[in-house]
Design a protein around this nucleic acid. Structure first.
Lengths: 194, 194
DNA sequence: ATTGATTGAGACACTATTGTCTCATTTTTG
DNA sequence: CAAAAATGAGACAATAGTGTCTCAATCAAT
C-alpha cells in the first residue's frame, strides 16, 4: 500500500495535527489541508510528509478515533454488574469523546477499517441492550435498533450539553441513563432492579 | 443582491433539481454541480441558469426546507389540546421531513435566513416543552435545552427508522413520544394526565 | 557544541470544479 | 402550426485545492 513515511514524526506535531483535523473537520467537512495545517500551527508540507493524501489523513484519524471509542465502550463492562450500571459506565466513558464520535459519522462513514471497527462497537452496545432487556430494564418489544440509535444520539447530545456548558459530565451521563430508561416524565425516578 | 433570473423555470425542472440536491447532499456533502444536474436529469447549464452559484442553490434549498419544516411544526398545535397530543402531532408531521432536516443541519448551518427560520421553529418547540412541563408530563427540573435536543434527535432517529423500513410512520411517532416521556423501561406504559 | 533529522516556506505542475457563453434542440404557448 | 421560451450539450477561462519537491532554518540527542 502506501510506503512507510521516510520521516519520523514528533509526538507534539502529530498531536497538533490530529486535534486540529478533528476540530476543523467537525465544524466544516470540507476543511482544506491548508486550513488544517494552519490550525495545527504546522506547515502544509509537514501534513503531506506524514499523510501523503487527504484521504490518508482522514483515514488515519478515523482509525484512531474508532479505536479510542472501542476502548472506552468496554470500560467497566464486567459481566457481573447490573446492566444499568454498565450502561452508566459506558456513557461516562464515551460522552467525553463526543467530538471523536461526530467526526466518525461525518467523515469516515465509507472507510473499511472504520466500518469494521464500528461493527465491534455496535456488537458491544447490542449485547448491553440485550442484557438490559433480560434484566427487565428495557421493554423487549422495543426494537434493539431503536435502542441502539437512541444510545448513539444520547452520547452526542450529552457531549454537546457539556461542551456548551449547561451540563457537567456527571449530570450528562445521569440524564442520558434516565432519558433512555425512564424518560423525562415528572414522576419518573430511577428505580433500579432491586 | 443577485439579479432576478432572466429565464423562468419549469416547475418539473425545479422539483427535480431540489429533490436531487437534497438527496445527493445528504449522502455526500461535497456533491458536485455536475452530479446534482445528472441526478436531476438536467443539464449543468440549467442549474447555473436558475442558481448562479453553488451557494445560491444550497441557500435556496435551505430556505425552502426550513419553511416546509416550520409549516409542519405548527400543524395541529391548537392551544386547547393536551400538550402530549400536540407533541404527537408534531412528530407525525415532522418525521416524514427527516431528510430535509438533516440537509439543514449539514449544509445550511451558517446561512442567515435559515438560522432565522430555525429560531422560529425553536420557539415553537420550546413553547411546547414549557406546556409539557406545566401539564406535568415532563419534569421541570430537566433543562429545556436537553428536552429540545432530544426532540430534535428523535425526529431524525424516527425518520431513519422509517426510511430503513423497520418502523412504520405511526410506530415511529408513537415510539418517539414514548421514548421522550416515559423512556424504554418495561413497565413504562403511556398514562396521559387524566 | 556538533551532527543528524524534522520542520517551514515557497515554487511548481496537475487536476477538478466552477461559472459563463453560444448554439442547436425541445417544449410550451397562443 | 408558428413564435417564443426554456433546455441540453459542449467549449472556455478562471479558480482553488492537491500533491511533490527543494532548500534553509530549527530542533533533538549525544
Amino acid at each position: 500500500m502506501s510506503a512507510p513515511p521516510k520521516h519520523a514524526i514528533r509526538p507534539a506535531t502529530l498531536e497538533a495535527i490530529v486535534e486540529a483535523a478533528i476540530h476543523l473537520l467537525n465544524a466544516n467537512a470540507g476543511a482544506t489541508m491548508s486550513e488544517i495545517a494552519a490550525q495545527a500551527g504546522v506547515g502544509r508540507a509537514t501534513l503531506h510528509r506524514h499523510f501523503q493524501t487527504r484521504k490518508d489523513l482522514i483515514r488515519a484519524i478515523g482509525i484512531r478515533c474508532i479505536e479510542e471509542m472501542n476502548a472506552s465502550v468496554q470500560i467497566g463492562q464486567d459481566a457481573g454488574k447490573p446492566a444499568v450500571d454498565r450502561l452508566r459506565s459506558m456513557f461516562r466513558a464515551v460522552i467525553p469523546l463526543g467530538d471523536r464520535y461526530s467526526f466518525l459519522s461525518l467523515e469516515s462513514a465509507d472507510d473499511d477499517s472504520v466500518r469494521q471497527g464500528y461493527k465491534v462497537q455496535l456488537r458491544w452496545v447490542e449485547a448491553l441492550v440485550e442484557d438490559l432487556k433480560k434484566q427487565r430494564e428495557i421493554d423487549p418489544d422495543v426494537p434493539t435498533r431503536w435502542v441502539v440509535a437512541q444510545i448513539d444520539q444520547l452520547v452526542w447530545t450529552a457531549w454537546n450539553g457539556t461542551s456548551e456548558g449547561y451540563l457537567t459530565p456527571d449530570e450528562a451521563s445521569e440524564l442520558a441513563v434516565r432519558t433512555l430508561i425512564h424518560g423525562l416524565h415528572r414522576r419518573a425516578q430511577p428505580h433500579y432492579s432491586s
